[in-house]
Simulated assay, not measured.
Amino acid sequence: MGVTPNIAPSMLSADFANLSSEAHRILNSGADWLHMDVMSHLTLFFSNSSSIPCRHFVPNLTIGAPVIESLRKHTTAYLDCHMMVTNPLDYVEPLGKAGASGFTFHVETSKDNWQELIQMIKSHGMRPGVALNPGTPIGEVYPLVEAEKPVEMVLVMTVEPGFGGQKFMPEMMDKVRILRKRYPLLDIEVDGGLGPSNIDMAASAGANCIVAGSSVFGASEPAEVISLLRSSVQKA
Results as ranks from 00 to 15, higher is better:
137 P>S: 08
125 G>C: 00
173 M>W: 01
177 R>I: 13
132 L>P: 07
115 Q>I: 09
14 A>M: 07
215 S>C: 13
130 V>I: 13
48 N>G: 03
15 D>M: 03
13 S>V: 07
33 W>L: 06
22 E>Y: 06
30 G>M: 05
95 L>G: 05
179 L>H: 10
220 S>G: 05
46 F>S: 10
133 N>Q: 11
144 L>S: 05
72 R>Y: 01
111 K>V: 11
184 P>G: 02
145 V>K: 13
53 P>T: 08
76 T>N: 15
197 S>P: 00
42 L>G: 06
10 S>I: 05
166 Q>T: 12
71 L>I: 08
3 V>W: 08
98 A>Y: 04
123 S>R: 15
64 G>D: 14
109 T>I: 05
219 A>K: 06
148 E>M: 12
233 V>Q: 12
186 L>T: 03
97 K>Q: 15
53 P>H: 03
135 G>P: 02
191 D>Y: 02
16 F>T: 06
84 M>P: 10
24 H>R: 07
155 L>Y: 02
89 L>I: 09
156 V>N: 01
63 I>P: 02
36 M>S: 02
15 D>G: 06
107 V>G: 04
227 S>F: 00
184 P>S: 01
93 E>I: 15
134 P>D: 10
43 T>W: 01
127 R>E: 05
87 N>L: 05
89 L>N: 15
230 R>I: 02
11 M>L: 15
163 F>D: 03
86 T>P: 01
38 V>K: 04
120 M>Q: 14
27 L>R: 00
169 M>W: 00
131 A>F: 05
93 E>C: 04
194 L>C: 07
129 G>A: 04
163 F>Q: 08
2 G>C: 08
